[in-house]
Design a binder for these strands. Structure first.
Lengths: 112, 112
DNA sequence: TTCCCTGCGTTTTGTTTTGGAACTTATGGC
DNA sequence: GCCATAAGTTCCAAAACAAAACGCAGGGAA
């Protein structure tokens, strides 16, 4: 089965994962919950490539998790802010934060 | 930055995602929470290929999320059961289930 | 004892996604 | 004009994935 077919799965967990269950997407949400909203902020903070970041942001907007907002009209610049739908996933990230603190100690030097 | 370098990130969310933040892994945990434990059960239920399933199970065991358990000695057969560490991620999946029910309605016919 | 069945993977062969880095576009300041 | 900034886009090689066939160790029936 292909991942792209998951959005119509009978299981609500699977449908949720069809939006956020890939590499990097939840890291974008983490940054959004920390108040970041700009492309460059996400790019620097998460360490993902601009290529993938652009693609993920596009999909999160399509899915209504983020909203693309014009924040400067000249030059035209957009940023990305959480919708109510996006906010409602915050508790899941909080659990992952606690779990990581408890179960995933840092082994070597952190880089980013 | 490569995904594989995430396990030593300063952020606990990132470290958590280095274990469960890829395609399919959380779907394995979903099945585990539903009481499944056998290779064939995971394979059929999730729809992922056996190739990837084997690789993910191996990593979840290495990370201490699942435990590989001999459940039949002749022929030798193993299954996979949740550790306490694995159990503690269950609330995150519960949130995703609720989120999916609320925000991700099924659009077409489900297949699996 | 030959043959098929079950359960748990591994191998093989293409396709898709990702990583890294350079390039583009529009504007503002000096 | 010339450099800087912000938000992407494009290109190519490398890694991950999908699908299907294969392997292996018994078990049970004929």
């Amino acid at each position: 089965m292909k991942w792209s077919e998951l959005s119509d799965n009978w299981c609500p967990v699977a449908r949720t994962l069809s939006v956020v269950g890939d590499r990097w997407t939840l890291l974008i949400l983490r940054d959004a919950y920390l108040g970041k909203s700009k492309f460059e902020e996400f790019a620097e903070s998460s360490g993902m490539t601009r290529h993938i970041l652009a693609e993920r942001l596009k999909r999160l907007v399509e899915e209504g998790v983020l909203e693309r907002r014009l924040y400067s009209s000249a030059p035209k610049r957009y940023d990305y802010v959480l919708t109510e739908k996006g906010e409602e996933l915050r508790p899941a990230l909080r659990i992952m934060k606690d779990w990581g603190k408890k179960h995933m100690p840092v082994r070597r030097e952190a880089k980013a």
